Computed example of a mutant assay.
Amino acid sequence: MKFLKASNEDGFTLIEMLIVLLIISVLILITIPNVTRHFESINEKGCSALVQMVQGQVEAYKIDFKTTPTIQDLVDNEYLNDDKTSCPNGDEIVIQSDGSVSVK
């Protein structure tokens, strides 16, 4: 009777799995700091774009009502939604007496 010997076993060895886990860990350690830096940049750009949009709504309100609005005036007259009165990072948007829009 002949015994068949498996010459080619399928699967990974423990060393191969550890090498793969090491490579994945290194990649994660490299990417996480880069991703957090990009979130800061995205928030800054989003806030800048929101300020420009509110400035446009202030100008439209001034044309319609011949007066400088407050943020609440813009919300009440549906020039802005309630969620557009502050930046994504939490900074409040304010309208100066001359109609210019800035971040507090």
Score class of each variant (00 low, 15 high):
Met1Trp: 11
Lys2Trp: 08
Lys2Phe: 05
Phe3His: 14
Leu4Phe: 13
Lys5Ser: 06
Lys5Gln: 12
Lys5Ala: 12
Lys5Met: 10
Ser7Tyr: 08
Asn8Thr: 14
Glu9Asp: 07
Asp10Tyr: 08
Asp10Leu: 10
Asp10Gly: 12
Asp10Lys: 14
Gly11Pro: 08
Gly11Met: 01
Gly11Ala: 12
Thr13Val: 06
Ile15Lys: 15
Ile15Leu: 13
Glu16Val: 03
Glu16Leu: 07
Met17Ile: 15
Met17Val: 09
Met17Glu: 11
Ile19Met: 13
Ile19Asp: 06
Ile19Glu: 14
Ile19Cys: 10
Leu21Ser: 07
Leu21Arg: 04
Leu22Arg: 01
Leu22Cys: 06
Ile28Cys: 12
Ile28Ala: 14
Leu29Lys: 12
Ile30Asn: 03
Pro33Phe: 01
Arg37His: 06
Phe39Glu: 10
Glu40Ala: 11
Glu40Asn: 12
Ser41Leu: 09
Ile42Ala: 08
Cys47Tyr: 01
Ser48Val: 09
Ala49Tyr: 08
Leu50Asp: 04
Leu50Asn: 01
Val51Cys: 02
Gln52Ser: 14
Met53Thr: 11
Met53Ile: 10
Val54Trp: 03
Gln55Asn: 05
Val58Gln: 02
Val58Thr: 05
Glu59Cys: 02
Ala60Phe: 02
Tyr61Glu: 03
Tyr61Trp: 07
Lys62Arg: 11
Lys62Gly: 09
Asp64Ala: 14
Phe65Asn: 10
Phe65Arg: 06
Thr67Asp: 11
Pro69Met: 06
Thr70Glu: 07
Thr70Trp: 01
Ile71Gln: 05
Ile71Trp: 10
Ile71Met: 15
Ile71Asn: 04
Ile71Phe: 05
Gln72Val: 04
Gln72Phe: 12
Asp73Cys: 02
Leu74Gly: 05
Leu74Asp: 05
Val75Pro: 04
Val75Tyr: 00
Asn77Met: 08
Glu78Arg: 14
Tyr79Asn: 00
Leu80Gly: 06
Leu80Pro: 00
Asn81Pro: 02
Lys84Pro: 06
Lys84Gln: 15
Lys84Arg: 10
Lys84Gly: 08
Thr85Gly: 02
Thr85His: 00
Thr85Phe: 00
Ser86Thr: 13
Ser86Phe: 09
Ser86His: 07
Cys87Arg: 01
Cys87Ile: 04
Pro88Ile: 03
Pro88Lys: 01
Asn89Ile: 09
Glu92Asn: 10
Val94Thr: 10
Ile95Ala: 03
Gln96Thr: 05
Gln96Glu: 11
Ser97Trp: 09
Gly99Val: 03
Ser102Ile: 09
Lys104Pro: 02
